[in-house]
């Protein structure tokens, strides 16, 4: 039989335990808020400083010694061109590698090495990729400090992201789809190209966008290959340079990108340049947020719509 005193004691224990639960919930929300608050403050602070600086001229002017005349024309053009090279080289390679590992790879030590190697590559700091590019692309292959070098560097950097995303979205396709295709007499490649790739394309796209969003903000490896910060001209347009002009003249041109432009302005002591840095940072954060947001939205839609 429970005595009244024991009952009270048990109740006290339960109350205390519940209080601890509540306390920890608060702590959890508080910790989350640290992140939320930092992000909000960062964004709002940059917006207050930078948004008044955003104007048509800011997007269409070259960097300048006078802060009020400076703009980000060469930076955003450079970013787009570098991203183009990155996407064109990283996406085919990454998707092909992901498909191989999921659909073809036999279970042996070669596959093991490739898998361990990919997860290891994902953990290497970005600046080390910059050093690789400096030694390999810039000097050994002789690409110089060009859009090509930077694009390939960032491609190597996001390759693991794309491979992992490809593998995950392929793995989400039920085995019965494979089996159905094989049962109809399809070869592995027919199965992959007619079924696996189309069904996983949305998932792969999500991974590609996340990878590209990361590449857009990468500063360190591009500084390491020696990108110039003061570029007051645009890369040659296709067929516009000295003859014999080609479609890809711009690929070996010197360049600057958004994060480097921002870094340059941030490291100057004058307040006017800090405002420029805030404006460039706002554009940069807006770009990466938009891309990440798009990826998150795509994934959400995907999870909602596909019922195998």
């Amino acid at each position: 039989m429970l005595k009244a005193a024991d009952l009270d004691a048990i109740r006290a224990i339960i109350t205390r335990a519940k209080r601890w639960d509540l306390f920890f919930s608060m702590l959890g929300i508080l910790s989350l808020m640290v992140g939320v608050l930092t992000f909000t403050v960062l964004f709002v602070d940059m917006a207050i400083q930078g948004v008044p600086r955003l104007s048509y001229e800011f997007f269409t002017s070259f960097p300048s010694r006078r802060a009020e005349n400076a703009g980000i024309l060469s930076a955003w053009v450079g970013t787009i061109l570098v991203m183009l090279v990155t996407a064109l080289s990283a996406v085919p390679l990454g998707v092909a590698a992901g498909v191989y590992l999921e659909e073809y790879a036999p279970k042996n030590w070669v596959t093991d090495i490739i898998e361990i190697n990919i997860s290891n590559l994902a953990g290497i700091p970005s600046i080390v990729y910059g050093l690789l590019a400096l030694g390999l692309f810039v000097y050994y292959f002789g690409f110089g400090q060009s859009i090509l070098s930077a694009g390939l560097t960032l491609a190597l950097l996001i390759l693991p992201v794309i491979i992992v995303a490809t593998r995950e979205s392929i793995r989400a396709i039920p085995q019965s789809i494979h089996e159905g295709s094989y049962a109809c007499g399809a070869t592995t490649w027919q199965t992959v190209s007619d079924h696996i790739l189309p069904y996983s394309s949305a998932g792969i796209l999500t991974g590609v966008i996340i990878g590209m969003a990361r590449a857009i903000g990468e500063t360190a490896p591009i500084i390491t290959i020696g990108a110039l910060t003061f570029i007051a001209f645009l890369p040659t347009a296709p067929f516009a340079g000295d003859p014999p002009a080609g479609l890809f003249d711009w690929i070996l041109a010197p360049f600057t990108v958004m994060p480097i432009q921002m870094f340059n302005w941030t490291s100057r002591p004058e307040a006017a340049f800090t405002v420029n840095a805030a404006a460039a940072g706002f554009v940069l954060v807006f770009m990466t947020l938009a891309m990440n947001g798009l990826a998150i939205y795509l994934r959400y839609q995907l999870r909602k719509n596909i019922k195998w």
Binding site: G35, D45, M46, G217, A220, F263, T266, G281, V285
Partner: peptide, 17 residues
């Protein structure tokens, strides 16, 4: 999203804020 903010922006935030 918090992990996707470019690190140069975090640097700017640390220095100026």
């Amino acid at each position: 999203l918090l992990g996707g903010v470019p690190t140069i922006v975090y640097g700017y935030f640390a220095l100026t804020f």
